[in-house]
Write a protein that binds this DNA or RNA. Structure first.
Lengths: 133, 133
DNA sequence: CTCAGTGCAAACTATTTGCAGATTT
DNA sequence: AAATCTGCAAATAGTTTGCACTGAG
């Protein structure tokens, strides 16, 4: 649960950290910029600083509680790491992100890396699309 | 040839533009940050400004003479657009980028987008790896 | 009580923009 | 000559850092 994760990361259980982790866990959305989180928490009466949001997200990233994505458009996007790897479809019209996982592609990536003499450490696959109709 | 491309993009054939395009075409490397280009041109005696490098690269990107990538690490990376689409393996140890093209993955991407009700407009696939041995 | 953590403001990095003078056509 | 373009310096956007104070253990 929640606070345990923070403690296991070697971090003190502080208000800002609990607020951010709770937001990530309980929101219906899954993808947030640091600014999003800052805004949402302020709307809930928090007076957290933007710098703290960044600091905590970076710590959570290191602790693998959170994954940071570099989609188009400058801002980093953060999402709770719930274990299962997936890639993303970014909706170019609406502000929406869809997750998917495809074993065929996952496999090919490993093979392609190997064909070029590489061990695959990580990858980033983002599909940009627009809704049909 | 060279200068024609610039003219076709509706741009005047100026020294900075020719210098940049020539560098991109004639260098043995294929991937450059704006800073790289700025440095290399200065080493060749140019006194181009960094702002101009960015301006020209952005214009070239719009004209589809150049492709901009957002790999890890802050800086955008630019490469000459020579038509054939490809993706990249980024060497995490050495400062090296390898290009590849894989039809299986290309196809699956289109299918996956469709399965989710999307028309695939673009995609970004980056494999991060390290040399075996 | 101690040390990690915080908010704020200032710093930083990559990139963009305003402007007066320089170049291209 | 007209319009575009350039270099420079200043502005901007996103993120990080220094510091004195605050709060968790």
């Amino acid at each position: 649960m929640n606070k345990e994760d923070i403690k296991e990361a070697g971090l003190k259980i502080t208000q800002p950290r609990v607020q951010i982790l709770t937001l990530l866990e309980e929101s219906s959305k899954r993808h947030f910029t640091a600014e999003d989180i800052y805004q949402l928490l302020h709307q809930s009466g928090s007076n957290i600083g933007l710098a703290t949001v960044y600091r905590v997200l970076t710590q959570f990233e290191t602790a693998e509680l959170v994954i940071r994505h570099n989609f188009e458009g400058g801002q980093s996007v953060f999402e709770l790491n719930e274990g299962g790897h997936h890639d993303h479809i970014v909706d170019l019209k609406e502000n929406k992100i869809i997750e998917f996982h495809d074993e065929i592609i996952e496999q090919r990536q490993v093979e392609i890396a190997k064909e070029h003499g590489y061990r695959l450490i990580d990858h980033s696959l983002i599909l940009y699309g627009e809704k049909i109709e």
